[in-house]
Structure formats: C-alpha cells, structure tokens
Design a binder for these strands. Structure first.
Length: 273
DNA sequence: CCTTAGTCCTGCATGC
DNA sequence: TGCATGCAGGACTAAG
C-alpha cells in the first residue's frame, strides 16, 4: 500500500501531535508485528517521551528519548490517532500516551513491522537516497549499468528509497519508457526525463495526501486524494490519457505493471541516444 | 550478480 | 448461496 507519499503524509500528521508526548503503556496484540523481543521493546520505550517523528524511504522513524523505532506499513498497515470500531479487529499494537491519547497500529494482513533499533547503530543502512530531487535521482540513474528491467531497478530500495509499484508505473508512463526495458538500454535523455518525473509525481501525491486504493489512510483516518490523478496504474483497458490507446497490464518482477503500449515502446526507436 | 518462486496474511472481486 | 481461484500498495529468503 504505502509508498513514500503516503508515509510522508502520515508522518506530517503524527509529528505535531506526538512531539513531546510520553508513552505510558504499549499493548501488543499481534507479537510478530514487533521485530525482536516484546519485553525488550516495552522496556526501552514505556515511560519515554517522543522528541521527533520523521520519514526515511517508506519507513516512519519515531525518536523517543535516546531510542528510535521504525514502523513499516508494508501492504495494509495504518498508523492512526483515532480508530473505528470495525478496525479494532485488526489492531496489532496500541501506544497509550500519558496525555490521554493513543497511537494505533492497525494492519489487516499482518505484514507490517515495528522495530526498535539498538543504540549507536546506523539506521536503515541499506536504503538508497531520497528521490524527491531531480538532481539526486539523475545522479543515481546515470550510474545504473544493470540489465535488470528499469521498473525492477526503480523498486529496488537500495537504489532509491521510497518508490513503489504505483509511482514506478506512473513515472515510467510520464517519461515514455516501457517498464521492461533493460535499465542499461534506457538512453541518457530518457534517464534525465525520468529523473524529473519521479520527484514530480511523488511531490504531487504528497500535496494530494497520498493514493488510497483500498487500505491506506492518513493518521486522521481519512482517504488520500491522489488516486483520481493516476494516469495508468490500475487503469487496464482504459484509454491512455495521451493517445487513447488502451492501457495494458503485464507482470514484471512479480508485480503488476501498467503501461501504454503506444507511448511506452519496448525498444525506443524514436531517440538515437 | 541475477531471476524465480515461496513466504508472510486477510479480504475482496470474480466466475462457475 | 456456496465454493474455488486470483489478486493486492512490500520485502525477505532460498535455490538455481
């Protein structure tokens, strides 16, 4: 579900509310949500005061005294400040604050993970750079020599941190690149175009508070608005917004991939590198 | 280094 | 209505 824009939206909702609040108690109702020992997690965080909430790639980072823990929402995870009755069934962890509010981790499919990091280690050491600036993305994409499909490269969090299935498809559409094109064969001019489109769509979606297909909600429990602006993702059979050719769906890297067969040719024969 | 398949899970849409 | 199948925004692991 959540990619960078959705996670960023959640963080922006949580930061002003949780900052300065003290965790009184943590109730874990699905233990596997917590990476490591529950007891260690509780001992480190109960009684601690939240100093800051931030984002790195698709991870939410919550700083609590001299400790930090991360939340990854995976497919269906939600971090909510309010909870509806029907969501209680999927409540996995509740953080109760001294000030009289709670933070709820709700996760239907139980793929989400919450992890306490040891003191003194580098957080999330394997993540690539943030993809919100064109010059950063271009620096990364210029260096790619892999023959893996360009879409596979975009989904690799070691290359860029935060791009997921929706925005990879959207960016490749805007740049006119077929998702299965071997990355090394994407001409430099196309890489430059893609480097502009990735930050563009991510920042657009942040403005729209993320894309709600089914599960994603903001910290207030509301839906995002970016789903109305998707050009190809989830639009198999609908006319391409540029040329009216029906959008196609294929599978790349075990992930559904949407593209316009006319605007995104497998072999780029329009440019001469 | 790379790809593929399997795993973790539940719920929903679709087709018979 | 019931039942089987396929599909889902992510990421890790094993095997070849």
């Amino acid at each position: 579900m959540p990619e960078l824009p959705e996670v960023e939206t959640v963080v922006r909702g949580l930061e002003p509310v949780l900052k300065g609040k003290t965790i009184q108690k943590i109730a874990i109702s699905w233990s596997r949500t917590i990476t490591g020992e529950d007891a260690v997690f509780l001992r480190a965080l109960e009684g601690g005061q939240v100093s800051h909430v931030s984002r790195r790639g698709k991870y939410i980072c919550i700083y609590c005294m001299d400790r930090v823990f991360t939340v990854h929402l995976r497919m269906t995870g939600k971090l909510l400040l309010r909870i509806e009755e029907k969501e209680r069934k999927h409540l996995r962890v509740e953080f109760v604050f001294k000030e009289g509010l709670s933070l709820y981790f709700v996760d239907t499919r139980k793929f989400g993970r919450i992890q306490l990091w040891p003191k003194g280690v580098t957080l999330l050491p394997d993540l690539g750079p943030e993809p919100l600036e064109a010059k950063t993305v271009l620096r990364v994409l210029r260096a790619v020599e892999s023959r893996r499909a360009i879409k596979t490269v975009l989904l690799d969090q070691k290359v860029l941190a935060g791009v997921g299935n929706i925005y990879a498809d959207e960016a490749l559409f805007l740049a006119g690149i077929h998702p299965a094109t071997p990355a090394v064969e994407v001409p430099l001019s196309k890489r430059a175009l893609l480097s502009k489109k990735i930050p563009l769509i991510l920042n657009e979606s942040i403005k729209n508070k993320g894309t709600t297909i089914s599960d994603y909600r903001t910290s207030e429990g509301t839906e995002g608005g970016n789903q109305f602006f998707l050009k190809v993702y989830g639009r198999k059979g609908e006319p391409c917004p540029k040329c009216r050719t029906p959008v196609e769906r294929t599978v790349i890297n075990q992930r559904s991939s949407h593209f316009c067969p006319s605007c995104q040719k497998p072999v780029d024969n329009k440019s001469i590198n």
